[in-house]
Design a protein around this nucleic acid. Structure first.
Lengths: 244, 244
DNA sequence: TATTGATATTGGTACGGACAAATCATCGAA
DNA sequence: TTCGATGATTTGTCCGTACCAATATCAATA
């Protein structure tokens, strides 16, 4: 493997720059199963410490690009097989990655008393006012999902969000970034109302995703229930074994 | 926070032992939002290097137990809100964690030609012989899921696996451990045959999980399709934002 | 009182070294 | 040829040090 000896750092830490450089070289010059240069070779080649090399490789391993074998080396993983784990995305980005154009039709946008289960998830008192946003989500103009979001009040200053835009983006503009979320995925048959909105036959199978979003401080700020059309949507995820 | 000064190491690395010790003390003596001792305090208290302390804390952070704030400290996260990510488990263990007793009824167990899509997932030639294992999975005696597994031949020496036992356990006994898997989750309506086996009405919504299991070397050895009853099963997962 | 600015504290990055554990290549013996 | 021992190689763990970046604290100032 050819080793470039200069790292481009645009404000990011050195190990991130090194990881990017390695990822690029893996894409361009290495095949699946090929070994990377040894850590000490990389250390010498890039003129960095082994600690930095190991951090960079750990980053690639976490992304599923490579895997380590103690005593042997570090090897390029199969990108077709090792899919990336589920990333936290909004609907728009999710659709974009599937090559679909996302749009939405707002069904409801107002302050309403919080139901019990949502209140528990958000850590607020039952019946206290939360922002309700109900939207029909379209992909390439055709109905894809029915989304009911409840957010803590005051996240958008005093006003309401723009129902047409990406919630995630608007939250970020107000200094609130959802860094992690917990989801429960179930299957359900559509009711008549839901089926009509989604342009599906009554009783059709739908994927129901209940999501609670947290900031990096662990504060729950958003609870969303989404009904995806079973015939159009699949949820991809990667799981790993417990360290044991 | 009280700091114990002795670490119990049962073969595991020091940072793992420290992480366990910290997790225990967090459970017993700290509340949500409380700050951990500073890294330098822990370093002195346990008599280890700061590197070891940081590794231990990184482990806890990855598990969602704590979170870091640069310049401020490390704080205890809310365990009720931050659920653990999905772990790679077999059906038996999955049910056990839900407090249900798993059993199974074998519907089919033989060698058969591999269909095209599975062949691609497993990286073998289409039509080559793979081990087919079809089982009805029961939880507390009631049908829960319909599982169709295809495995590379020869994983169990020359014979077939015991259809009643845990596949995962039997694989491990033959030196094959599935370390990661990629899954696609969809919703579907049950056919008449499937519905009958699962004791559900025809057309009931079911959660379909297509899983491909890989060894730590990235080799695919198992492809499983599982139909879970929509009224009994939910899939829980945690997602995180991309590092960006 | 409110704001600013200096200073200390805390986690984040980076360097260096040493040894352990797993693996691999080699060589010798059976 | 086959098997096993041996030593070299490679990743994993652990230690120590130094400095950077973000945050918190508090005194000085307007």
């Amino acid at each position: 493997m050819e080793i470039s000896r200069e790292l481009v750092r645009t404000g990011s830490p050195k190990y991130v720059a090194l990881a990017n450089a390695l990822a690029e070289q893996i894409r361009t010059t290495l095949a699946i199963g090929d070994p990377l240069p040894t850590e000490r070779e990389l250390q010498a080649g890039f003129g960095v410490s082994r600690d930095t090399v190991r951090r960079a490789i750990a980053r690639l391993a976490a992304a599923g690009l490579v895997f380590n074998v103690q005593g042997s080396g570090t090897y390029v993983a199969d990108p077709a097989q090792i899919r990336k784990g589920p990333r936290l995305t909004g609907f728009s980005q999710d659709m974009a990655e599937r090559g679909l154009r996302a749009s939405s039709r707002t069904l409801d946008c107002r302050i309403e008393p919080c139901p019990a289960d949502t209140a528990r998830a958000l850590g607020v008192a039952e019946g206290s006012g939360v922002l309700l946003l109900r939207r029909l989500r379209l992909a390439d103009q055709a109905p894809m999902a029915l989304e009911t979001a409840r957010l803590l009040p005051g996240l958008f200053g005093d006003g309401l969000p723009d129902p047409e835009g990406s919630l995630d983006t608007q939250l970020a503009e107000h200094g609130q970034r959802i860094m992690r979320a917990s989801q429960t995925i179930t299957a359900t048959n559509l009711t008549a109302t839901e089926a009509h909105l989604l342009d599906q036959p009554v009783g059709a199978a739908a994927l129901r995703v209940d999501r609670v979003g947290f900031t990096d401080r662990g504060r729950a700020i958003e609870a969303t229930e989404t009904l995806y059309r079973g015939d159009r949507y699949g949820y991809e995820t990667a799981v790993e074994r417990d360290p044991s």
